[in-house]
Design a protein around this nucleic acid. Sequence first.
RNA 1: GCGAGAGUGGCGGAACUGGCAGACGCGCGAGACUUAGGAUCUCGUGGGAAACCGUGGGGGUUCAAGUCCCCCCUCUCGCACCA
Length: 697
Amino acid sequence: MVIQKELEQWFFKITDYAEELLQGLTTLTGWPERVLVMQRNWIGKSLGVEVDFPLAEPKPDLPAIRIFTTRQDTIFGATFMSVAPESPLVERLIEGRSQAAAVREFVVRVSRQDKAVRTDADREKEGIFTGAYAVNPFTKARIPIWVANFVLYEYGTGAIMAVPAHDQRDFDFAKQYGIPIKLVIQNPAGSLAEDHLDDAYEEQETAGRLVNSNRFSGLSVPEAKTKIAAFVEEQRLGRRTVNYRLRDWGLSRQRYWGTPIPMIYCRACGVVPVPERDLPVELPKDVPFTGKGSSPLAQVEGFVQAACPKCHGPARRETDTMDTFVDSSWYFLRYCSPQADRQPVDPAASDYWMAVDQYIGGIEHAVLHLLYARFFTKVIRDLGLTKADEPFLNLLTQGMVTKETYRCATHGWLLPGDLLGSEGEGWRCATCQGVAQKGRVEKMSKSKKNVVDPERLIDTFGADTARLFSLFAAPPEKDLEWSDSGVEGASRFLNRVWRLLGDLAGTLSAERGTLNQREAEPVAPQVLEIRRLTHRTIKKVTDDIERDFQFNTAIAALMEFVNGLYKFAAERHADRPGNPAPGEAAAFGEAAEALVLLLAPFAPHVAEELWEVLGRAPSVAQQPWPPYDPALVASERLTIPIQVNGKLRSKVEVPADSTEEHVLAMAKQDAKISEWLQGKPTRKVIYVEKKLVNFVV
RNA sequence: GCGAGAGUGGCGGAACUGGCAGACGCGCGAGACUUAGGAUCUCGUGGGAAACCGUGGGGGUUCAAGUCCCCCCUCUCGCACCA
């Protein structure tokens, strides 16, 4: 059973930074849009006004109820007010009234409800009349004050003006309790009738006009918002206000693992912070975990008992620990100067290292961790310990690993090892032989049992295969669907690389170095082709890694490279057994080295061994990234697609430096093309250099 | 409901600024080598007999659209009584 208790807790005043945390988002150009949106929503800034609604029977210390609204344009339609059940106003409003007992009972019932139930959007709207009335300051009408379950005590002022005609929640509530509805905005068609409304008219963007609103009638919604807000201030009824959805960060946890909150409670002096010389407060080692009651630390008398730093009398320590998000909010700053012992961050070191150029994490941290880390950075900056305004310049939110699920009617979710059968013949449960249903692809989890055993994976295929597959299966920001046959494919590729280099290694060493003399002698065409492939691959892999970590296409390029090298090797054996063209072995040598270097980030262990196979000194990890020769990246000959009326009809091969005239001439000579062009006047010829020709006939 | 992202072969995914759609891998098919193959190698593999048709659907711009514009559908994620 879960019981709600009120606890006294510690908070960080993150709300002081709400505006800066919001504004800072515009500078985070290296962050994914959806993370920015989530943070913007989380901060939830809204502009509105606070207005005092005088009580019909004012009390000396409570003359009015203050509300917050963003829809001041509808204020003439406010026909009642609602107050949050938790609000202390409730008690003040009902005191001495006949309704008091019933209202108290309602408040108790609502506050007992589970928070999850209460915050459910479909929750039924419920309320109770307090017996008290207020005066709408614009219409001077006497309006009843209700307690309503949907009004949030934590947001705004904990009390609202209710405009049933233009707010769906108020509309539902008014309908339920028979409260009058007053129309104050008419739609452009003029079709809204106060007594026949099916729903609240909440539209603000279209050209609705104010009605029944005195001197403000006829204005559009935006005009009315501005004018009424100004009027409220002129008349001293209230003021323009900014509200944030963001709440202060409650950091107290009734757990052991976490940083102790360095506070001491003294009967005489109150709450006293632990003085700096006594920091850090360390967690005691010997703690009983009973699993019940309060914080584990509260059980440790030796920890709890302390002397008051002020009066040195007996006092008690805070026994709650901090939310572990506190630690992850500034570790990157601490990493800049882990040895600094006088302060948490050495400003010089922080200025050198910060901000973090590239941050990688799961999307689940979009709001909490990434907002808290931004908050801490700003606080630490304001303490003068760093100049960074923002901690992370570029953010990559990598996807989750997913896998299909299997379920047996009697045994529930099944581990891959508890499955019999195959995709074709269907799946069965290994325990009961019953039918196993293949379910959705979901995030790997222990509960759904759609997991792979890393031990077995590594025993069978090795860590390189697992890594290579993970990087190849999807771009990093997308979810990765685990596939056993895909893993086999990755393993097959590494084996192909292994065999290729093993075959080549023997013949390579003899001719190393001849590449350097390539200017001196004519180069055989196949040598040039091998070298072109090599340099094009280096460029492709380099570009793909630098362009948003597109490891999947980088690995695809390596696979193409290997396929190409096999082809060249096979041709060599077929055409010129034992008789290589000048420089051919050297070109293969260059290719082999590049292959190993490019493969190293994706399959470091295999690459390290291959580096040795090539007879090079360890370690491949110490080698510079291979450069490419731009001259070798460009092809010598191009295949130009030829279209007629935008449809592909043929292709011609031309030297890369061909002029437009030459390409067009070649195209017209092409047998298929000349057939298509025959007898029809060519109206237009589109020529895109090195790309394509299109005849419009 | 609001916001963001995405829809491409049997599957995972390529296609950067409009210019050969389907790279690469899986799967599948055929063949080779084999006592054997769930190893390896080679070839093929969007649909269609073909003309042609094909990037969720429908319009549009353009010589040319997966890519740009308009409308619609579906899915995933986030927020959700925030006044």
